[in-house]
Design a protein around this nucleic acid. Structure first.
Lengths: 247, 247
DNA sequence: ACCTACTGACTGACCGGTCAGTAATGTATC
DNA sequence: GATACATTACTGACCGGTCAGTCAGTAGGT
């Protein structure tokens, strides 16, 4: 009836269980399993979306069977929650700690936030999470709410602190702070969304230049009327190597 | 066997066939059907995503049965394509025409592009399309490619023209034009994505202020060193009513 | 021998897609 | 203006494949 040997080798030629391959024959991994599963799930959810991701594929990518998945998670949705949560929270905490004891100008703090975000989130595989949340938030409002509370609110707080510091010191002009925060965040999100959605489209200017241009436009736009470009001297005209891109 | 009168009234209590309701008993609508169906499909695809949208629901919302749907479209994917295409192309053409015979400063042209986009796309139900494309592009690369060719490329061309005009006239400093385009577009896309994904989260600063802040930051960031704020006098400090928003 | 992590065949619901049938409308004939 | 036939827009029960979730059973560890 069914092939006796070669249990699942014939299928899954591409997505071999990368995370697990070298860990002995197979069994006895109760402690490591959940994170292996959430990691595999996160990849596939980002890639295909929630509804189009099959749990068989998640299990296969983690190197186990679907049954095992249900030993650790009650449902597909629970797995989804766990994958998002596990991916996010530790990094938010880390970011807050890094920023807490930062001393420097407001522009430098802003720069640290932007490029630090790229180092820790935007440039890693975690960058798929925003796209995932955006895609699925209508179907999973609680995920969106969780993401909002645990990521958006806290991220905005970090930016708000930097902006208010700049305004207080006179480094920035008076601002509609909350709206400026939106305008700062948007290009960051688009950067990762682009990467996970339309990346193939050729127009792939490198993120460093993109971030630099964004930061440069920003500090020029924020400083008071007639004020010179402050900050470190070594990053002088920044962002614009005159005519960089593909015209 | 089936209820003779009240053909499908009992179902669909919420999503009544709004577009069709008042058009006589029901039949003989061959010409109007396709656009009714694509409109219903677009709404549901935006709302739930492609995979999670059921064709029964699309048909129900358009006030017909699923069978009828297959008289006009070969498959779910064909419906998806048609919905996206029908929603987009006419508006791109219109935008290009409106811009073609625009005379004014580069900043004014930029302003026209931003706010015109909001009038024609961002503020309408078409705004759901970018979210849809982003969510599904991995699963439907041809849709993404189509969107890229017919919307992104042409939209970028409009912005490019405005920026190059400004650089040529000295109104803007020399720029990494392509990257600046990215930075201009990103907040626009995020505005509509936000609306269709995380809108419930309370932080709903109105789009007009958001666009104004974005535009204001932009022209300040783009103008050459030491240049005064040009453009119309009546929009003087713009974007920042000092401390507008919440907190 | 017992435990326990794990398996994978199974099921039941769901949904894309089909098609035989139905009811309006149009048209021909008287 | 009525009756019969033809056409066409549409219906909804049905089918087959897919997949989330289950559970009796297996195999490694102790």
């Amino acid at each position: 009836m069914r092939p006796p040997a070669v249990p699942e080798k014939s299928l899954a030629p591409v997505e071999a269980p990368a995370a697990v391959a070298a860990s002995g024959p197979r069994r006895r991994r109760k402690d490591a399993r959940p994170s292996e599963l959430t990691a595999a799930a996160l990849e596939l959810f980002v890639e295909k979306g929630f509804a189009a991701t099959r749990l068989d594929d998640v299990a296969k990518r983690a190197g186990v069977s679907k049954g095992t998945l249900y030993l650790y998670f009650d449902s597909k949705e629970a797995l989804f929650n766990a994958a998002v949560e596990e991916g996010i929270v530790p990094h938010m905490v880390a970011a807050e700690e890094r920023i807490a004891d930062f001393d420097g100008s407001a522009a430098e703090l802003l720069r640290e936030l932007l490029f630090g975000w790229w180092e820790q989130i935007g440039g890693t595989r975690l960058a798929g999470i925003p796209k995932l949340v955006i895609s699925e938030s209508r179907n999973f409002p609680d995920i969106a709410q969780y993401y909002h509370d645990k990521v958006i609110v806290r991220g905005r707080a970090l930016l708000r602190a930097a902006l208010l510091r700049g305004v207080a010191s006179g480094e920035f002009r008076p601002l509609d702070v909350e709206t400026v925060i939106d305008v700062i965040i948007a290009p960051l999100l688009m950067l990762v969304i682009w990467k996970y959605s339309l990346c193939f489209c050729g127009t792939e200017s490198d993120p460093q230049r993109y971030l630099t241009t964004h930061f440069d436009l920003l500090v020029r736009g924020l400083r008071p009327e007639g004020s010179p470009l402050g900050g470190r001297p070594e990053e002088s005209p920044a962002g614009a190597g005159s005519q960089g891109g593909e015209a």
